[in-house]
Amino acid sequence: MIGLSGVSRRFGAVEALAGIDLEVGESEFLAVIGRSGCGKSTLLRIIAGLLEPSAGTVVVDGRPVRRPRRDVALVFQRPALLPWRTVLGNVLLPVEILGLPSASSRKHALELLDSAGLGDVHGRLPHELSGGMQQRVALCRALVQRPRVLLMDEPFSALDALTRAELADRLQELHMGLRATTVFVTHSIQEAVLLADRVAVLTPRPGRIRKILDVDIPRPRSFGHNAHLIEVSRCVAELHDLLL
């Protein structure tokens, strides 16, 4: 679904990414993990078509990426909601900009909000919601355009630990249902192990892929008690060693 070969990116004299080769399969959930400033976000923006690579090629669904695609949706670190629009109005923003059919999209948006537990707050303004709820709204907004590719840039990093765990759990459920190809940038080892089919570990300055780790743990996974604690801790330990 997504293919990068020899992708590099410089910002002036700074080399942010160097020689990235990466394949993400259809419906796969890939986590990209690394320290701050290792080019994770740059990588995501290149896949999204928001940034051009200095060298190398990016292909999504068989086509080279030159500009943002309609079937690729982004979720940012911060919710990035429009403060003057209601929750529903925010979710419908992509519908208006992309010119999707409004009646069916509205129904779809309400369903998404319902399933995110936001059904009864769809008329509220974002500032009336908690941070976790705002980020759930942002997730609904990304899903309203029925993306085939979901690109997420540390979407839970601005939230408290409990809310993060709750949202990560919810994202896992969502992914099991929707099967959108997902690239999930994070600096949380726990999140990566809970969510990803594979984890790409990036080294900083310039960002290179150090290793791609397969996470062969059956789903649904959990942070709590489950049958896979040994596998989970093995993966966590391995990522820990690679990163620190």
Binding site: R45, A48, G49, L50, R67, P68, R70, V72, A73, L74, F76, Q77, R78, A80, L82, W84, L93, P94, E96, I97, L98, Q145
Partner: peptide, 24 residues
């Protein structure tokens, strides 16, 4: 991030102003 949101949706200049930049 609001600018990027608009660009990621391929919003036109007009849409960027009418829906995001001017209200902001």
């Amino acid at each position: 991030e609001l600018g990027e949101l608009g660009r990621s949706l391929s919003a036109s200049r007009w849409q960027q102003y009418a829906k995001i930049r001017l209200p902001w």
